[in-house]
Amino acid sequence: MDSLVVLVLCLSCLLLLSLWRQSSGRGKLPPGPTPLPVIGNILQIGIKDISKSLTNLSKVYGPVFTLYFGLKPIVVLHGYEAVKEALIDLGEEFSGRGIFPLAERANRGFGIVFSNGKKWKEIRRFSLMTLRNFGMGKRSIEDRVQEEARCLVEELRKTKASPCDPTFILGCAPCNVICSIIFHKRFDYKDQQFLNLMEKLNENIKILSSPWIQICNNFSPIIDYFPGTHNKLLKNVAFMKSYILEKVKEHQESMDMNNPQDFIDCFLMKMEKEKHNQPSEFTIESLENTAVDLFGAGTETTSTTLRYALLLLLKHPEVTAKVQEEIERVIGRNRSPCMQDRSHMPYTDAVVHEVQRYIDLLPTSLPHAVTCDIKFRNYLIPKGTTILISLTSVLHDNKEFPNPEMFDPHHFLDEGGNFKKSKYFMPFSAGKRICVGEALAGMELFLFLTSILQNFNLKSLVDPKNLDTTPVVNGFASVPPFYQLCFIPV
């Protein structure tokens, strides 16, 4: 009986604490739906499609509103004006990374994606500088992407125009580009180590996009005490870190300090320079996690976009025909596509942009946080508050993009057929937390897609009208449904 009384008292205290925290903070924060004790607004949000729920709530509470995930307040920004004001106009104040408990377990605050403060700034600055020195957006990395595009075309030829699921092959190409940047090595598509790495990356994007992960991140005790797919994700990350550590040891034994070959060499050189400046942010643990982040951000996002792009091109054969006509006119058949071609191919450029806009790969991006107490639109948001960005509300804005739910390359073309930029184009987020590999991803999408369409016609196994382009999961990332196609050599 005594234990029951204690339990009831504990629960009562928890409920009172929950109510007090919510009521004391709500006077400062933007308005929002009334949260339930302990669980907050979790029942009012469709976990399978958070973005749709945010759109519905914005119609009631406006472009800036507050939700509670458990006891934790989260300020939501919906629509271009609110997102721009926060991420661009007040970029420094909104540059923090929001709480992501599962990532905390995986990387302990290291790396480039989930770190904060001085650690994040130094690692991000170093990573950007190193990638630029190796030619991100310049010639040397373009050579690597072109080489991988040629290998991709050869792998597709091996399908002999038979029906195939493109998931694996389209994942190999961007993964190999990242391998060449980090390890100075590309792998054969049949290499077992490479296959294991690909498998872990593919599993992780599916797990991260599941409703279960949303629950884990908002009720963090689940991570330590409950079984579930989150444990598989943590094991996959541990596998990748151990693999990278092996490569780091190989580099330490063979590195030429006067001739760095890749990202690992550059990081080890930085560690050597910083060894007298303790404590340094440049450690082996930081290198492991930064490399894992580059793999995660640079492989599955690009391969998922490529997979979605081919599905949309199957669905819209008239678009595919126009792209192939432009390829034939500008590039021809006797040389590989290059980035200089893009400025002469406005329709193809528009298609690449429209694919990214339409699929809305990361509907709410990753959570941000404010780095200080900030007054925002007459609300006071306390330091450390998590900020949720609705990228969907920007990419699918119906004023900027008429009929935003329709796939239409003319969203990025003017009346004369010239490519038209849009400030609403934010597939990689915006501001200080914009994806480090934005330029690389854009290069890969253009070169891989043009190389495929230069060499193959795409054949659907069903009537294009019957192809479903609805994402199968739409949590962290929008993942396309399973499909097969035939690559018919031109």
Rank of each mutant, 00 (worst) to 15 (best):
Q193M: 13
V319G: 00
F412G: 00
K235E: 11
C172Y: 03
P73V: 04
E288R: 10
M269Q: 13
R357D: 01
K249Q: 12
L67W: 06
N218S: 14
E281Q: 08
M136S: 12
S429G: 15
D49Q: 05
F419A: 02
K383L: 04
T392M: 05
F134D: 15
T34S: 15
A103V: 14
G91N: 12
V145Q: 02
L268M: 08
T34L: 09
L102V: 11
H316N: 11
S3N: 07
V60A: 11
S365W: 15
E281R: 09
P37Y: 02
R21K: 11
I374Q: 06
S162Q: 15
D463K: 10
N277H: 15
D2W: 15
K158G: 08
I215F: 14
C372S: 15
L449N: 00
M269E: 13
K206Y: 11
K121Q: 14
G40F: 00
Y243M: 14
L152T: 01
D143A: 13
I374M: 12
K241W: 03
V38N: 02
I50A: 08
W212D: 02
V370M: 07
S451V: 07
N204Y: 08
G171V: 06
E253T: 05
L362N: 05
R150H: 07
L440R: 00
N218Y: 13
T130I: 08
F134G: 15
L447F: 07
P166G: 01
L4P: 02
H230L: 08
L287A: 05
E92C: 07
L447A: 04
N217F: 07
F69G: 06
E155R: 03
A103Y: 09
R377E: 02
T304G: 08
N418E: 13
F448D: 02
I359D: 01
M136T: 10
L71K: 13
L197P: 00
K315A: 08
Y483V: 02
I359T: 15
I39Q: 02
P174L: 07
L156I: 14
D89P: 03
D397Y: 04
N277M: 06
L90E: 10
F295P: 01
F94N: 03
S422H: 07
E438L: 07
S53H: 13
P471T: 03
E328A: 12
A291R: 00
E272L: 11
A309G: 09
L395E: 12
C338S: 14
L268A: 05
E250T: 07
P464K: 11
G296I: 13
E250W: 04
Y243R: 05
S280M: 09
D397A: 05
P471S: 08
E250P: 03
R139Y: 11
R333G: 12
Y483R: 01
V355T: 06
G475E: 05
K190A: 11
R433P: 06
M345W: 01
R377A: 05
W212R: 02
Q261K: 15
S429A: 10
P464T: 11
G27L: 12
F376T: 02
T371P: 07
N258S: 14
K275M: 03
S280E: 07
G135V: 12
D256G: 11
E250M: 07
F134V: 15
F134A: 14
N403V: 06
G117H: 11
S51V: 08
D165E: 03
V76L: 03
Q340L: 14
M129Y: 09
F295K: 00
G109T: 14
F94Q: 04
L90T: 06
T470Y: 06
C338H: 05
D143C: 14
F428L: 06
I434D: 15
D256E: 15
P317C: 02
T304S: 10
V462H: 11
L208E: 14
G417M: 10
T34F: 08
S220V: 09
Q261V: 15
F267E: 04
L453F: 04
G117Q: 08
L77Q: 01
L453N: 02
P464H: 08
K247A: 09
L294G: 00
S53N: 15
K247Q: 15
P409L: 03
G416S: 14
H251Y: 03
E274W: 08
F456S: 01
G70V: 02
N218L: 13
E328I: 10
E199R: 13
R377P: 00
N457G: 09
N289F: 06
V370L: 09
Y358T: 06
L11G: 09
D262I: 01
K28L: 13
G109C: 14
E203G: 09
E285P: 04
N277G: 13
K52G: 12
D468V: 13
V237E: 07
N56P: 11
C13K: 01
F263P: 04
S451K: 08
L445H: 08
L313N: 02
V330I: 11
M345S: 01
M240Y: 05
C266E: 10
I389L: 09
G91Y: 04
C151P: 01
A477D: 06
V292T: 11
L36G: 04
S58T: 07
E274P: 04
P427Y: 05
V370C: 09
L453S: 01
I327D: 01
E274D: 09
L234T: 09
D2M: 12
E285F: 04
L131A: 03
